[in-house]
Nucleic acid binder design. Structure first.
Lengths: 221, 221
DNA sequence: AGCCATTATGTCAGTCGCTGACAATCGACA
DNA sequence: TGTCGATTGTCAGCGACTGACATAATGGCT
């Protein structure tokens, strides 16, 4: 989870912690590799655990279920997004702040930050895996929903609103999530047409946002 | 699935079909009852099958998994919604058509139509069950997503657009789905304040729609 | 260095969701 | 009534996941 505060001691918070982080990372890597190689369903948890030389029971002490290990990188990215959003200047409008935070997430992903395992191409492979795996898609949508709730909370805080009363934060968070999701889909459908890099994705998101107004307009002709 | 064409023969399409429909309905009813009574997780498929005096194997011939039997009623309602949407006058704008179709769904639900097992109070109980059950919520969100794709297709047809090129149908369908979902949540959070009937739900949806413009506006102050 | 409390890991047994294969049974239709 | 195809039950088995208990590794303390 994006490395806590820690790093105050010379051996970066004890051997124990480092070791745990290492096996956790190894599990995520192995799982990712196996899933992409032979598919999600055909990969057993035993297989993942064995390839890291750990018992199945240990696997389930790190991850609540098979889906979680697949979506772990995304969870980190989402966490990062929330922190970046909280850090945006208060003068920005909610929408500006979110656009800005998205740009920042992709930039840090591009520089190999975000739990060091995340890369732009890696993220795209993962999206593809998720979209083609019903169980993963379902789990991912549930996480997305949770993320929307968190985003709405941040937005409400920024504007000094009560999210239980005012629906706008929740509504904007949901709309924003949808736009980003559709952008990912469009990109994945034809990566070649968008330059294979972060900028392609970002300009795609911008274009989708520009369609939001027209889409809600009365008539489309 | 909302009774096919059928009903051409005196004994409504053969004894065989009727019997199948009967056990299917019985399974859905039993499952629904058990889920609400003792929770989704604590109810085994064996239990459901046994209470209808059918083997577990037969259960899985009717439903692909445990989630499906819980969401079956919703699937029917969604199917109905699509049909109603297709039937809306072509003169209506996309948004008007969708609002109209939603009203119609709740009306037919209120009159005990929609696969005869759906009632308004029953639907609300189901929503509550879904929201409080992670696996069910995930499966439901996946179905919702699929429904959005279908809705977008219908909207594109109505306007003579190509959904692969023009993003507006998909975008509007998603936004609409979000609004309806948030309305259900608001309603479920405080059913007493909304009159316990279909009209309460409908006016709530209208109010949420009215917030959409302001939510997307630049500033919220 | 040696000991102890804590914590991570392994093993084992068991439940539950779900599937393929085969045999038995039931409804449709000549 | 007898045949054909569809529906069902039985059985065996896989894989995800969990609780309980034993074992080892680690970090702090003297």
């Amino acid at each position: 989870m994006a490395t806590p505060v820690s790093a105050v001691h010379p051996h970066s918070a004890g051997l124990r912690e480092r070791k745990k982080q290492k096996t956790r990372d190894a599990l995520v890597d192995a799982a990712h590799r196996l899933f992409l190689q032979q598919g999600y369903a055909k990969t057993t948890v035993d297989e993942i655990a064995a390839s890291v030389e750990v018992s199945q029971r240990t696997f389930f002490r790190y991850f609540a279920n098979k889906e979680e290990v697949a979506l772990a990188v995304l969870a980190d990215a989402e966490e990062t997004f929330l922190e970046l959003l909280r850090g945006r200047p208060a003068a920005e409008s909610p929408l500006e702040a979110m656009r800005g935070a998205v740009r920042q997430v992709w930039h840090s992903l591009d520089q190999g930050r975000v739990a060091e395992r995340g890369t732009v191409t890696g993220a795209l492979e993962l999206f593809e895996l998720i979209e083609s795996t019903p169980t993963l898609l379902a789990a991912h949508l549930r996480h997305t929903l949770h993320q929307e709730v968190e985003v709405a909370r941040v937005l409400a805080d920024r504007e000094g609103l009560d999210p239980a009363v005012d629906l706008r934060p929740r509504l904007l968070a949901a709309v924003f999530g949808t736009v980003v999701r559709l952008s990912h889909l469009s990109y994945a459908a034809a990566p070649d047409q968008h330059g294979h890099c972060m900028d392609g994705m970002l300009s795609l998101i911008e274009r989708h946002f520009d369609q939001l107004g027209p889409a809600l307009a009365g008539s489309w002709r």
